[in-house]
Amino acid sequence: MIRFDHVGKTYPGGTTAVEDFSLTIDSHASVVLVGTSGSGKTTLMRMVNRMVDPTSGRVLIDDEDVAGVDPVKLRRSIGYVMQASGLLPHRTVAENVATVPLLEGVSRRRSRSRALALLEMVGLDHRLGDRYPSQLSGGQQQRVGVARALASDPNILLMDEPFGAVDPIVRAELQKELLRLQSELGKTILFVTHDIDEAFLIGEQVVILRPGGEIAQQGTPAEILADPADDFVESFVGSGVGKRALHVDEVSGQQVVLDAGDRPVGVLREGSRS
């Protein structure tokens, strides 16, 4: 369980990234913080592994204040995936995946066999293990980033716009893969994105942030879509401008589903589920 208890972050220059934020994330839940730049979402995520220390309030993991935990030890116990993978370009893929075990002093041999197994788990050929990150495609690198985060079998996964730098098709694949992994592993995931569609797909709970880390609305995707709290949320999720409203038109005897811009998105079939 991760608990943000009235945390705030003001930088020495006087800029306030987060005003006063409280949130509890249950164990094994996937929670997405979604907001535009300046919403403080990345700052909040980084407070969990002490990449950022709050200037007020506390962050607790399983009721222990992280401020009292050695940051290096803390970070090794939490998986972290970032945009553009953040892999070490001078280490092979297998060495990258084994980063934390190697730092923790696990033998090279054992780290490597664990790394190769993890590559298979995230859907990569283990033979990619001896390549360097620059020899992989963006999507493959991102999978390696996920494998690396899982290497020490952490309870918590922090994901900072992990699929932001890949093309939409690859992104959709990676999102599906993450959902599959999560259904197997049941980690506590804190995921940050600016993409509301991604947030609704990944998050059991979605937290929509206003600038300064203020919670505009929090709930399941269905709850938010069905009952947006205010205009800000409505415009953010697109329901206010009718972007998500679909309507049906009959074209040559077929029920064609059109979106708000009258673009056809599909055909309506009675009862069929294939």
């Binding site: 970032m82 953040g86 001078h90 934390v100």
Partner: peptide, 25 residues
Amino acid sequence: RDTLQSATAQGYAPLARFLRVELPL
């Protein structure tokens, strides 16, 4: 900077990060 931050996030202590990540890169 992203690579260095990523190394920090994985749990490299400052000196180890300098010697084993920043210097080789």
